[in-house]
Lab assay of single mutants.
Amino acid sequence: VAKRKCPDHGLDLSTYCQEDRQLICVLCPVIGAHQGHQLSTLDEA
């Protein structure tokens, strides 16, 4: 199974943004649109 990539940063989608209910990469909460959002690992989601 191919991993999905972040459209903004090109990295694997490895984190779940609880606020926006979507998968994001590790850079999205650091330099992207998900700064300050509640996050979960994929195992927790």
Rank of each mutant, 00 (worst) to 15 (best):
Q38D: 14
V30M: 12
L42S: 14
C25Y: 02
D43R: 08
L23E: 15
A2Q: 14
A33Y: 07
K5W: 03
K3L: 07
I24H: 03
C17L: 00
H37Q: 02
S14Q: 12
V30S: 12
D43Q: 10
V26M: 11
E44W: 05
S14C: 07
R4Q: 08
L13E: 06
L13Q: 12
C25D: 02
C6L: 00
R4W: 05
H34F: 01
V26S: 15
G32N: 03
Q18S: 11
D20L: 02
C6I: 01
L39H: 13
H9W: 00
K5S: 06
A33W: 05
D12L: 05
R21E: 14
L13R: 07
V30K: 15
C6M: 00
I31C: 07
H9I: 01
K5L: 05
L27H: 08
T15N: 13
G32I: 01
R4S: 09
S40Q: 13
H37Y: 01
I24W: 01
D12T: 08
L13D: 02
K5A: 04
C25S: 01
D43K: 08
C6R: 00
D20M: 02
I24C: 09
C28K: 01
L13V: 07
G10W: 03
P29H: 11
A2W: 05
C28N: 01
D43G: 11
S14G: 13
S40Y: 08
S40A: 12
I31H: 14
Q35T: 10
K3A: 06
Q38N: 14
Q18Y: 15
C6K: 01
H37D: 02
R21K: 15
Q38E: 13
D20A: 02
D12N: 08
E19I: 08
L42N: 12
Q18I: 09
H37K: 02
L13T: 08
L42T: 15
I24Q: 03
D43F: 05
G36M: 04
I24S: 03
D12Q: 06
P29Q: 08
G10T: 03
G32L: 01
Y16W: 10
E19C: 08
Y16R: 09
D43P: 12
L42H: 15
S40G: 13
R21S: 15
T41G: 13
G36D: 08
I31G: 12
C28Y: 00
C25P: 02
D8H: 14
V1H: 04
V1G: 06
K3W: 04
L39P: 10
Q38C: 09
E19K: 10
V26W: 08
Y16V: 09
Q22S: 13
H37W: 00
D12I: 11
E19L: 07
D20W: 00
L13C: 10
H9N: 01
V1F: 04
L39F: 11
P29F: 04
G10K: 07
S14V: 13
S14F: 08
G10V: 03
K5F: 06
V30F: 06
T15Q: 14
E19H: 10
P29D: 08
Q35Y: 08
H34S: 01
G10Q: 11
T41K: 14
C28D: 02
R4I: 09
A45D: 12
E44M: 09
